[in-house]
Design a protein around this nucleic acid. Structure first.
Lengths: 103, 103
DNA sequence: CAGTATCCCAAATGATACTG
DNA sequence: CAGTATCATTTGGGATACTG
């Protein structure tokens, strides 16, 4: 839970399931997260070796994030959480897809 | 994450996997949680219909907690999280079993 | 573009003592 | 036994502005 317990960590991992993403792509996928939070949680995930950050020394800057092999091991759990969440919302009478991006 | 994101919720669910437990049994299983927190998170789980609380009107009081059918649906995820956590600790060089009760 | 810096607030948790 | 009450503290997160 320390690893994916943050407010956006699971969503970030979820977004990276389908491949490498640049910073602003993640930002678009998780618009509720402010730059500060996004940066913070990305760093957390990087420190936990769930994701890897690749910085291209070009102007303008280009950064790419992707799951590490270890991070991949988390994918089934994140997906399970996601579909359980859908089920939960159904039971609660509020059907919402996995692409749910917050209120 | 709102459901199991609390500090002890997942541990409580994990403890209830093997059957009904009384309050003090859960307390023993999750000793880091103060009575206040335990009570609070138990209520949360009850409101989310993950667990059910049965109060026996006897003296001294007797209360039992168990997973609802809906709560059972969470078990595979909690177990997956647990074993992933073990794996995580191994990778980090700190092998710790699922019965890990905090520092 | 990909972030940082600074300030602030609310929620979560902890400690301790008490009760039906 | 199974909690509550009260108070203090920590932590997470938000808003906004700025930068290499």
């Amino acid at each position: 839970m320390d690893v994916i317990g943050g407010k956006y960590n699971a969503l970030i991992v979820y977004e990276l399931i389908n491949g490498t993403r640049r910073y602003h792509e993640i930002q678009k996928a998780v618009p509720q997260a402010t730059p500060r939070m996004l940066s913070k949680q990305l760093k957390e995930l990087e420190e936990d070796e769930i994701i890897i950050r690749t910085l291209y020394p070009v102007v303008p800057p280009k950064t790419e994030y992707s799951l590490t092999e270890f991070g991949q091991s988390l994918v089934p759990i994140v997906e399970a959480l996601c579909s359980w969440g859908e089920h939960y919302f159904e039971v609660a009478g509020v059907p919402i897809p996995c692409t749910y991006t917050g209120s």
